[in-house]
């Protein structure tokens, strides 16, 4: 029984076909990674799942419910969180307001306060910067904020698009640690898109390798890491 099941997804940007039949599934509690070269269509896949991009064909079933082509705000409501590529924090709002926006659909005040506490325990740096305009945060802090903001919506399923992008290696380690923590302690299922395949396959249980709009390989992380094809193309030898 999978939490997310994508079958034969086709997506176009205008006349250009970008995804030509992507299928994947994620079971509850898993961390699954989607790796692949630049322009393979990883971000497009996530953007289609969260409703930012419309699918031309194919089905997406989340928790037994077909969600392909629902508007994003209805998909979020079902418990699917998306930390988008490039973080997309609200640079004109304070850190606190960004987190509040994350809890936009939550109405229970005590639950919201609890999520604030949780996010601040995960990223104490955000607590220190709570009243600061988010645009003045460092890249790493912005990534923490983007993840924290998504957590405020209490997702059951969290998609992260290149959380390591433009961040110092030491901090990347720390952020990946948090992702594992979120998965283990909160039981949040994770779909992780990464350029840094080494790191992604370290934290993920399973992985998909994508190439020019198609899924090329699928296996558990250990097997993928041992695969000569994957090693030469994505793991630097």
């Amino acid at each position: 029984m999978s939490l997310l099941e994508v079958r034969d997804l086709h997506v176009n940007y205008g006349a250009i076909s970008v995804l030509h039949g992507v299928s994947l599934r994620v079971a509850p509690g898993e961390i699954v990674t989607l790796i692949g070269a630049n322009g393979a269509g990883k971000s497009t896949t996530l953007r289609t799942l969260s409703g930012l991009v419309r699918a031309r064909a194919g089905t997406v079933v989340f928790d037994g419910k077909p969600i392909a082509n629902l508007p994003p705000h209805e998909i979020v409501r079902l418990g699917l969180g998306h930390v988008p590529e490039g973080r997309m924090i609200f640079a004109n709002l304070t850190v606190h307001e960004n987190l509040q926006m994350g809890a936009y659909l939550q109405h229970d005040r005590t639950a919201i306060a609890r999520e604030f506490d949780y996010v601040f325990s995960l990223f104490p740096r955000l607590k220190e910067r709570e009243r600061q305009i988010a645009g003045t945060l460092s890249g790493g802090e912005q990534q923490m904020l983007a993840i924290g903001r998504a957590l405020m919506g209490r997702p059951r399923f969290l998609m992260l698009d290149e959380p390591s992008l433009g961040i110092a290696p030491l901090l990347v380690k720390a952020i990946f640690q948090k992702i594992t923590e979120i998965n283990r302690e909160r039981g949040i299922t994770v779909l992780l898109v990464e350029q840094n395949a080494n790191l992604a396959l370290e934290v993920a249980h399973r992985g998909y390798v994508m190439e020019t709009g198609r899924i090329l390989l699928e296996n558990d992380s250990a097997t993928l890491r041992a695969d000569p094809q994957v090693r030469s193309a994505y793991l630097g030898g």
Binding site: V76, R77, G81, A91, L93, E97, Y104, L105
Partner: peptide
């Protein structure tokens, strides 16, 4: 809340939609 959402939408509509905002 609605005012904060307005400012969020005006900065980045897609990100606001990902927060569950009905644009």
């Amino acid at each position: 809340k609605v005012g904060t959402a307005m400012r969020a939408v005006s900065f980045n509509e897609q990100a606001a939609a990902l927060m569950g905002v009905n644009i």
